[in-house]
Simulated scan of single mutants.
Amino acid sequence: MDRRIQKSRESIIEAFIQLLSEKNFEQITINQIAERANVSRGTVYLHFMDKFDLLDQCIKSHLVKLIESSLFCGVTGIFPSKEALLHSFRYLKEHALFYGAVLADQSVPEFRTRLQAALLRGLDKQIDMSGINQGRNKEIMLQFLASALAGMIEWWITSAEPYSTEELVDELWILMERNQMTPVPHV
């Protein structure tokens, strides 16, 4: 992609995220996005069909990057190690403006739904159903744990990260170990 086109696209996305952190999604207009990005309305429409498409593409991009951040060590699964979980929370902190905006905005409920769906897919591969989990209903366990993790992410981001990433991950990892959510060691 041409550098000027890429720069315009990035400016539009950055302007949109800034506006999203300042006001509700429903209040944001294409004119405001264009003005903040210092581009024309037409340029915004060259990149995105409308503000809903822009939101959708931002959500997709950030969720993909969040999931990729947990897979950087080459192991599959949503949180294959404590280090991967720490890396994911560092990514969340680095992009807290976006995550805080979409989690706090009541007019963007699909973000939490999509976050939880991504967690469900990853956790499904991680939960050990032997030992204390043997005979338990995996679907109920998955729903509970994905909701808990999504809630922790939402609380941590919208509360302006009241604990360091390291402290939060230490506590989360202990909880995940207690619930046999950590990866099963291969023997």
Rank of each mutant, 00 (worst) to 15 (best):
D128Q: 02
I132P: 15
I127S: 01
I78P: 00
A117L: 10
T29D: 15
L66F: 08
V75K: 14
S81G: 06
E35Y: 13
G122Q: 03
L103H: 07
Q116R: 14
A34W: 05
K93Y: 10
R41Q: 11
Q32M: 11
L86K: 10
Q27S: 11
A118N: 08
F52Q: 11
L71F: 09
A101M: 04
D53E: 10
V44A: 04
S40Y: 02
S107I: 06
Y91C: 04
G77L: 03
L55T: 00
F48W: 06
A118W: 06
D128T: 10
G42N: 11
F48Q: 04
S130V: 09
S61N: 09
E139R: 14
P80Y: 01
I59F: 00
D56W: 07
G131E: 12
S70H: 12
A96W: 06
K125T: 11
A117Q: 12
C73Q: 13
A117N: 13
Q27P: 07
T113I: 11
S69A: 12
T43L: 06
F98P: 01
G135D: 05
G42T: 07
L92G: 01
I30A: 13
H62Y: 06
F72R: 15
S40W: 05
D128S: 07
G122M: 06
T43H: 03
F111W: 00
K93A: 11
S61C: 06
L85K: 05
S61E: 08
A37W: 03
Y99H: 02
G42P: 04
L86W: 08
H47Y: 08
L63K: 03
H47Q: 03
R112M: 08
V44S: 03
M49K: 13
A104C: 15
R112A: 12
Q126A: 05
K82R: 12
R90C: 10
L63Q: 02
L54M: 04
A37N: 07
Y91W: 05
R121K: 14
T43E: 04
G74H: 09
E94S: 15
V64E: 13
K138A: 04
D128L: 07
N137S: 07
D105Y: 01
G42E: 05
K51R: 03
F48C: 04
A37Y: 03
L63M: 07
I59M: 00
T113G: 02
A104R: 13
E68M: 14
E35K: 14
L55Y: 00
V102W: 04
S130K: 12
I78S: 03
D53L: 08
P80Q: 00
K65A: 11
T76S: 14
F98G: 00
A34E: 05
L123P: 01
D128V: 08
V75H: 11
C58R: 00
L86I: 13
C73T: 14
D53T: 08
E35V: 13
L46C: 14
R36T: 12
P109A: 05
F79N: 08
A118T: 10
N38H: 15
D124C: 11
G131T: 10
G131K: 10
S88I: 14
S88G: 12
L120A: 09
C73R: 13
E110D: 11
L119Q: 09
R114L: 09
D50Y: 01
Y99Q: 00
F52G: 12
E83N: 06
S70T: 13
L86H: 07
A118I: 06
H95A: 05
K138S: 10
K51G: 00
F89N: 01
